[in-house]
Amino acid sequence: MKRKISFYALHLCLCLAFLFLPYAFTSSKTIFTWPDLYSNVHDRIYFFIYFSLLCFFYFNYYYLIPKYYFKNKRLLYFIMIVCFLLFFLWISRFLDHPDHNFLDFRPHPRSFSGDPKPFEGIKPPPDFRGMPPHPMPLDTIGGPPTQYGHTALVYLLGVISSLLFAISGRLQNVEKEKMKSELAFLKAQINPHFLFNTLNSIYALALKKDDRTPDAVIQLSELMRYIISEANEEVIDLSKEINYINSFISLQKTRLGNTAKVDYQVSGKPFGKSITPLILVSFIENAFKHGVNPDQTSEIGIHIDILEDMLKMEVSNKKTFSVKSETGIGLQNTIERLTLLYPNRHQLEIENSADKYIVKLSIKV
């Protein structure tokens, strides 16, 4: 909501600045002169022309460019641009000199044919002999009206700027769609990977005929419900992600029993904060995958600190002799998702020593 308000406020300020641009520097040598739209015809003409050009800018940006330029009808688009240019030139010329021909660029001095005494009261010109040469002022030379060039310049600037803005916005949308496709692909890889590992865990419990197998199945169903219903959102409430992590760790404890020491701590209040779903659990899953061995005592530490605008998580696991050095597909995809979704908003440190694997993650939430 705040972004929309700031967007409209910015456009309103830019429109007002554009409308009052002709009055910023006037012949009265003042920085700004308030337009006299009531009694000054020239001010009304400028205001009307600039207002029309402003309306055409938005019409071109929101209608002509998407409908014609981006639909490979560019020849028709440029023909329409030329036609609108001629129309605005005609409007500006007609309003400025309604009695003159639109295509007549010649100067029109006042005619004295109807005056009975056209030269009465006119003083003879001064004697310029002996005076140093001086360039003739520009306003006495005459020439084509400047209103054409002024209107054409503002019009072309508006067309070019609207094209640049539209092309830039289209490129940004293409980049966003590409990012969404990449994220969807990464998620599609993460979810089956997690399901495969969890089913293996429950299968191990079933082979042992462990009484905790039904509870593990229920916990898995809750996790899958979260993945199906919540994980497709771009962002979710942090409290839901924490609940998901709680269920995941509870399921792993059920599977491992007393063979693993899990130090899991959460501090801070997650309510009112948002995060991308499934962005944290891959690091935790990686610790259980590579840091657990039934023949050894496993040690896993998971500490999550929720601050005012920052989440800090540290996941550590003691390495076992069966741990491989390469990371799993879920962890690698999570690192790529962090790069795409939290550019310059996260910090990831991975310490891979001989006997311990530690992940330190900080995310702005």
Rank of each mutant, 00 (worst) to 15 (best):
P107A: 04
P109E: 03
P118A: 01
F119I: 02
P107H: 01
P145C: 14
G121H: 06
D115Y: 08
Y155R: 00
A152K: 02
L103E: 03
P118N: 00
P125K: 14
D139G: 04
D115V: 13
L138P: 03
P118F: 05
S161N: 05
D115N: 11
I141F: 12
K123Q: 13
F119S: 04
H134A: 14
I160W: 10
G158F: 11
A152T: 07
P135H: 08
Y155A: 01
G121I: 02
M136S: 12
P118E: 00
I160Q: 04
V159E: 02
G121T: 01
P116K: 04
S111L: 13
V159A: 05
G158M: 09
S162H: 03
R129H: 14
L163T: 03
D127A: 04
P109K: 04
L156W: 14
P133N: 11
A152I: 07
F112T: 08
F119V: 00
P145T: 15
R106P: 01
G130W: 07
P107M: 05
P135W: 09
F165G: 03
G121D: 01
D127G: 03
F165M: 14
S161Q: 09
K123W: 09
P109Q: 00
L163I: 07
R106L: 14
P137R: 06
S162W: 00
P124V: 11
G114I: 03
M136W: 12
L164T: 13
Y155L: 01
A152S: 07
H150I: 13
P124A: 14
T140P: 06
F119T: 06
I141M: 13
F165E: 06
R110N: 09
P109D: 06
P109I: 02
P145D: 15
P118D: 00
S162N: 05
P137G: 02
L157H: 08
F165Y: 11
H108F: 09
P107E: 03
P109S: 02
P109A: 04
P144C: 09
G158R: 05
K123Y: 12
G121N: 01
P132C: 01
G149L: 10
P137T: 01
R129I: 12
L156D: 07
G142N: 04
G158V: 06
K117A: 12
E120D: 11
S111N: 13
I122H: 07
G143R: 02
I141W: 09
D127Q: 05
T140D: 09
P133V: 13
P144Y: 11
D104I: 02
S162I: 00
L138C: 06
P135T: 09
L157K: 07
L153M: 12
Y155M: 00
Q147D: 14
L164V: 15
P144D: 09
P118H: 03
P144K: 15
S111K: 10
D115A: 07
T146F: 10
P132G: 02
T151K: 03
M136I: 15
S111T: 10
I141Y: 10
K117G: 08
G143L: 00
Y148A: 01
G158I: 07
T140E: 10
Q147Y: 15
G130I: 06
F112V: 11
P137D: 04
D104N: 05
G143P: 03
V154A: 05
P118V: 00
M136E: 13
F165K: 04
H108L: 07
I122D: 04
G114D: 08
R110L: 13
